[in-house]
């Protein structure tokens, strides 16, 4: 299980990079198992607040809502996931990014977990 050190993490298993890129974690994709469908419910230009729903990810046995780790304006959405939802399993921290945000208030990042705290949080739930 990977926990890249340059990311911040949420209790709902999203990650965010300092540049505003958002996705779900390795732990989350593992829990979901084979992802079959990704629906991003925000569009470029939308304003989202921290905790707003931004996407729904479905596997054969589960469905997960994905929430904005911080507030901001949606700068890009990853259209590639429409046809290749399996990227979420294959490359959760890379090709399977969901959206890019222009972060409104960088202070919101401080409230998130760093890699070691998140790793401990995942262990706790085993």
């Amino acid at each position: 299980m990977e926990f890249p050190a340059d990311l911040k993490y949420t209790k709902n298993d999203e990650w965010i990079r300092a540049d505003g890129t958002v996705g779900i974690t390795d732990y989350a994709q593992d829990q979901l198992s084979d992802v079959v469908f990704v629906e991003i419910v925000v569009s470029e230009g939308d304003e989202v607040a921290q905790g707003d729903i931004i996407a729904t990810i479905e596997s054969v046995k589960a469905a997960a809502d994905v929430y904005a780790p911080v507030g901001g304006k949606v700068a890009a959405v990853n259209a590639e996931l429409d046809d290749s939802p399996e990227l979420v399993n294959e490359d959760p921290y890379g090709k399977a990014w969901l959206i890019k945000l222009e972060i409104a208030d960088a202070a919101e990042l401080d409230g998130l977990m760093d890699a070691s705290a998140y790793e401990a949080y995942c262990k706790e739930r085993e």
Partner: peptide
């Protein structure tokens, strides 16, 4: 049975 993620046994109140 497919697309079960729409259904109550997985998605509950949603």
């Amino acid at each position: 049975l497919t697309l079960s993620a729409r259904e109550q046994h997985i998605r509950r109140e949603r």
